[in-house]
Design a protein around this nucleic acid. Sequence first.
DNA 1: GCCCGCATGTAACTGGTTACATGATTGT
DNA 2: ACAATCATGTAACCAGTTACATGCGGGC
Lengths: 182, 182
Amino acid sequence: MPRARQSEVAVLGALSVAPMTGYAIREAIRDVLGHFWSESFGQIYPTLAALEKDGLIERTEGGTAKASPYAITAAGESHLRELLAQPIQRTPPRDGLMLRLFFGRMTGTDRCRTLLEEVLSEARQRLAMFAALRAEIAGEEQYAQDAPYWLLTVSAGEHTARASIAWAEESLAALEAMEGKP
Amino acid sequence: MPRARQSEVAVLGALSVAPMTGYAIREAIRDVLGHFWSESFGQIYPTLAALEKDGLIERTEGGTAKASPYAITAAGESHLRELLAQPIQRTPPRDGLMLRLFFGRMTGTDRCRTLLEEVLSEARQRLAMFAALRAEIAGEEQYAQDAPYWLLTVSAGEHTARASIAWAEESLAALEAMEGKP
DNA sequence: GCCCGCATGTAACTGGTTACATGATTGT
DNA sequence: ACAATCATGTAACCAGTTACATGCGGGC
């Protein structure tokens, strides 16, 4: 039972929105899916080659002078639909932050406080980023069909970020209470 | 710049709480750290062998008749402290659920609704699990020193689960609104 | 006597990252 | 001219998973 090549879904999905070069795919994934997905060049280009070989995508003529973007084919679209219908591939969780808090007794409350303050500031940054992303998505009218789905994922990010903030603040208070009676 | 062997931290950390066999380590990780960490046997045993070779852990005599648990040494404790002090190793995000929602236009609102309902029921199960875990941690008085740190991670899980629930409910409503005017 | 849970390992595989190498355009 | 960005690739490595193999002890 081989694990599904998840990169295939992401790359094919990106091309289902608009034709793009490999480079542009990476940028799109970093900027728009960045908060829940990542792809490296070393994964994108081999995937593109494999997809083209299977006739799921094809190079388009010209476009910009520089390079020829890939476009998804009809076969590619139906393949993507199949992939998206498959059960979700959950990656086993490995959260280094939680590990450090769990074994916090070894390092003390100070280290934990530092970690939690990092969580706080990062979550706040993420919230600002999501606000910008929301505006950007609402602005691009050519993707009006996709926008409602995209906003679902942005909303997920916002909920998670707000939860992180609430949790971190609560935990910082708990740490302070701990220090009172060690 | 080789990536840190994260399994080392988890295994060494587990042994910093109490001496255990490899099998018990795996159970402990699955049952207590399960919501933010995972280890497989194929990772635990080689890690144990390497740690023993470096004198960071050692086999204890007897214990139960069946097998000899490993115990952390003084060197192991100081090594663990170093590892925990190192910057967090963040694994690049790859959330298959979000990917499916983002490209939801390809599969339609029905598929998205199914996914969100799964999120809802799983999050509710997780909340129940966390309540049980909380009780278990509070019950074991020999780990009173560790308990406050452990509860930090449980609380994180609870906040995340509640955020998932709120988000999923909101998103289900948004999907219904979308179907009104497609 | 047999099955299940405890216990320990190992070999093969693989998805994915990092780092390196290279070249064409475009702006300054 | 030259730097930065766009663009495409590949080779090496690696952590971690899956699957397989094995054996002991205790309960039924």
